[in-house]
Design a protein around this nucleic acid. Structure first.
Lengths: 137, 137
DNA sequence: ATAATAGCTATAGTAACTGGAGGAAAACAT
DNA sequence: ATGTTTTCCTCCAGTTACTATAGCTATTAT
């Protein structure tokens, strides 16, 4: 049996976050010690590790809830799980696709200012209109 | 003089967002019509466009507040504005740098599952441990 | 004059935590 | 057994940048 602090160190999930996951129903309400402190079984640590790994990959709590639900039914087809992963991949790709033009634009803005005074500042001029932009955003 | 709806259409900023910016002090409290409705001058539209452009580039409200503050002092050096832009560039680059390994990991996870049943699902197995991961995250 | 459209305030909700206050339990040292 | 330190408890508020709703009023068009 693990205390919440041990569970936290074992998984890298902060203690208030563990309690938050319990509140959200991602983790079952933990067993309690005589003095009302949470105690965890190794399988609950595995579950939390799963959640952490998925969160690190950007899956939402909702998506993780679905994945956990699915994993409770070993005999079902895994098409749903695949779809959730594909969707998440798309989300990450979309984010990258949005950030890249921002990076380009900011590179231009941040590296081209050689003015001395705010009045000539390329950064502020760039933000004031889209005329200097290399792409839409 | 523009109504809030006209200002919204002119800048692409939604009406509740404009009011939110006023509340946050990014926009000055607008003049009012007899019937207490907000009325805007063209220069307030320019200011809002600036804010919008900066938000689209991912600058935080706080950063934008600083930039606006700076632009009110044309004679000052523009080093501060440059620094804010450089910082934002770094933030965007960091985000991309974090997302790329996620993309790789998700590609692997999402494209390699050929199981039929949840019990063999590569997606779920990948999330259950880090053993299959190609990189740390 | 009436109807349609647009605007007002105030409040609450979103996602996923994070932090603090005030107090109780557990672990360790003497 | 007692004291101290560490860990834990619950509850509540704050974070970011909006977005939505309810109930009401102003403006515009017919």
């Amino acid at each position: 049996m693990l205390t919440i602090g041990e569970l936290s160190r074992a998984t890298g999930v902060k203690i208030p976050t563990i309690r938050y996951y319990e509140q959200m129903g991602l983790m079952a309400a933990a067993e309690r010690s005589e003095g009302n402190q949470r105690r965890y079984e190794p399988r609950e640590r595995d579950r939390l590790s799963f959640i952490k790994h998925a969160r690190d990959l950007g899956f939402t709590i909702e998506a993780i809830r679905e994945l956990l639900e699915l994993s409770a039914h070993p005999e079902r087809p895994c098409a749903d799980a695949d779809e959730i992963a594909v969707r998440q991949l798309q989300i990450v790709r979309d984010k990258i696709a949005k950030l890249r033009p921002l990076e380009k634009e900011l590179e231009r803005i941040a590296t081209r200012c050689h003015g001395d005074q705010i009045r000539d500042c390329y950064v502020l001029q760039s933000l004031a209109s889209h005329e200097l932009c290399v792409s839409e955003h």
